[in-house]
Nucleic acid binder design. Structure first.
Lengths: 360, 360
DNA sequence: AAAAACCATGTACACGTTTACATCAGTCCC
DNA sequence: GGGACTGATGTAAACGTGTACATGGTTTTT
């Protein structure tokens, strides 16, 4: 039905080899014939069969992306970034959503990407050692976001720096009693991000001369509900925090909801800071540490392009900066007071007078 | 390097044809040889080359999805739904993000999906007549979300019903002065959704005996900023509305932000209702008309499976129901009053006493 | 018991490209 | 002016699978 390369060759009165060369812009084709071929292809509405092309050339023109979620904000942003640059270079993106445990296992059992992709991008997926090895054994250039795999290209943010910034922001506002809602620390597969952020939190507090209090660290499991409970727990302490650092905006949203439901407000009663700059953060006026999400996707894709073109032999590692975005949920600390015994008059600046500008 | 079908055939001491049949579970293979083949394949870590397979069989095992955004909540949800059911049936999903005007044009100029996919899913993409024809000319089963293309499978929500429900909800709460923030009505390519929703709004108002006031309809262009301005415009009317129906949650968020910035609150000063049940709607406690987003993706995928398997010859059309989710941004209307001259005492129930249960 | 039907298996070609190699006509250089 | 080179083009062999058809053996039918 559809025109094939032989049809074009016949019409242009050349061989299929010449058609192939002409269409792909290879050298050693005279301008005259190239034009003739192009016209013939146009007239026949010809387009190459990718399968035949890939079978013959051995290149798949496809890069696989494996990730734990497609429908969460963070991942969809990253994928959009990857997609835009790969698409511009005529590469297809094949998404593998390994969020479901069974799908994950099946993926590594069957390795459906073997011989199917020219390169691989792994987004923030906790992998066992065996699984890493399985990926490496595919022997294609691989770029990894977040976690780290030896021999692979790498993009990440400086989590320690970002978390430190968040906590320092609270310290600088005068807070000393600072809680943290942590991520999934216990994941056996070893997400390192929560650990790094927690470590930064402890370090900054120590530097500020604040004594460590384990009660102020509550797990939020990266989810809104769990974070809401965590916040409730913090607020029910004998000596509740005046500020809370949630390890992700998602969790900060949960914390804010608890606050609202308890009739409290940020930052009047408790300051809250998140991490990510989720799209909803602006809506909720959440102070947060922003990371350039789509940009990280673009960087990963660029690394893949470099690897594929052979431009750069050795895998590189890129660390992108985070930036503090001050909005309305953090404010100067009041002098020590219980949540339940409002001290008056209130010292310190009114929260509304606090800077709400966005640091760029 | 990787094992091919001939290697497996050699090891199992059969022909490649038998290997092919055994591996795909076709009939006319004895149990003994099938097992032998399976074992050989296992031992050699064999996996079929999809390109060769597709070239030979003519089936691509791929369905193309074209959409205007990958990174917006709505679309990423739908894609997740599509992905889950197609993946389970060993079909690949090839995403084409046509949001950018240039990408869109290039897509229809080059038609890169021709001979590349077994089926097509079109998500809510406004298309010119010529573009529709181009898609239809690909001659593959096509499922469309939202808009409608003759001869294609179809999934949508009942926009008229959903919008009517939203407006009736406000009417039932006693509101009579009801504004609407509309979507991109002027798009030349003809998104029909905004028109339908606007029509429903007018109809319900008319049924309730409320006179039509063009000032109360303000375009929000499906964006948060535009919607925020629209809300500002509504509130600056000589006789501002006591309730506002925003055609999407996104726009409702913009409206709420304006409210907050003006020091007003929902529903105390103005009731706000949205449409979609965006994931952030719960966070902001926004009353809205929910549509099952991921579910629509699953339905589209199922239609494609039906079409591909030949189970159902004629394209079907599925309309999925919406449901009202009452949260905290809508409340009973007060008696007529200006925003700037608070009437007291306040009649009607206090907003906090209003039902905040979620209708299921 | 012969004919027919059936089943397991093999043979061989098609699918539509890419590409190594061959060919051939010019061009260059001393 | 003849070899050496260059550039345009053609030839033909992969690439790895699916599948129509052929083959030969076994079972069923009459």
């Amino acid at each position: 039905m559809a025109a094939s390369i032989t049809d074009v060759a016949r019409r242009a009165e050349v061989s299929t080899a010449t058609v192939s060369r002409a269409l792909r812009g290879l050298p050693n084709v005279s301008e005259a014939t190239r034009e003739r071929v192009l016209r013939a292809a146009e007239e026949l509405q010809y387009s190459v069969s990718p399968h035949a092309s890939r079978l013959a050339s051995g290149r798949t023109g496809t890069v696989g992306v494996i990730l734990p979620f497609v429908n969460r904000w963070f991942y969809s942003q990253v994928v959009a970034g990857i997609d835009s640059v790969l698409r511009a270079n005529d590469l297809d993106v094949l998404l593998y959503n390994l969020g479901d445990e069974r799908v994950h296992e099946r993926f590594f059992a069957r390795m459906p990407l073997r011989r199917r992709v020219d390169a691989l991008i792994v987004l923030n997926l906790p992998l066992s050692a065996a699984e890493c090895e399985a990926l490496v054994s595919m022997d294609v250039p691989t770029a990894v976001l977040g976690t780290r795999i030896p021999g692979c290209w790498h993009v990440s943010i400086d989590n320690a720096e970002g978390a430190s910034t968040a906590v320092r922001h609270l310290i600088n506002l005068g807070h000393r009693r600072i809680g943290m809602i942590t991520g999934a620390l216990g994941d056996p597969r070893g997400f390192t991000t929560p650990i790094v952020r927690q470590h930064a939190y402890r370090t900054v507090l120590a530097q500020a001369g604040v004594a460590y209090d384990p009660d102020l660290e509550v797990p939020g499991h990266l989810e809104i509900e769990a974070a809401a409970s965590a916040m409730a727990k913090l607020l029910s302490l004998p000596d509740p925090p005046t500020a809370v650092f949630a390890e992700s905006d998602q969790m900060a949203f949960g914390a804010l909801r608890t606050l609202t439901r308890m009739g409290l407000r940020a930052p009047d009663d408790v300051s809250v800071i998140g991490f990510d700059d989720h799209e909803a953060a602006e809506l909720l006026d959440l102070t947060t540490v922003a990371q350039p999400v789509a940009h990280q996707g673009e960087l990963l894709a660029r690394q893949i392009l470099d690897a594929l073109s052979g431009a750069s032999e050795e895998p590189t590692r890129v660390v992108v900066p985070t930036r503090l975005v001050v909005r309305g949920t953090t404010g100067a600390a009041r002098v020590a007071r219980s949540l339940y015994h409002i001290s008056s008059p209130r010292p310190g600046p009114e929260p509304d007078q606090h800077s709400r500008t966005t640091a760029r």
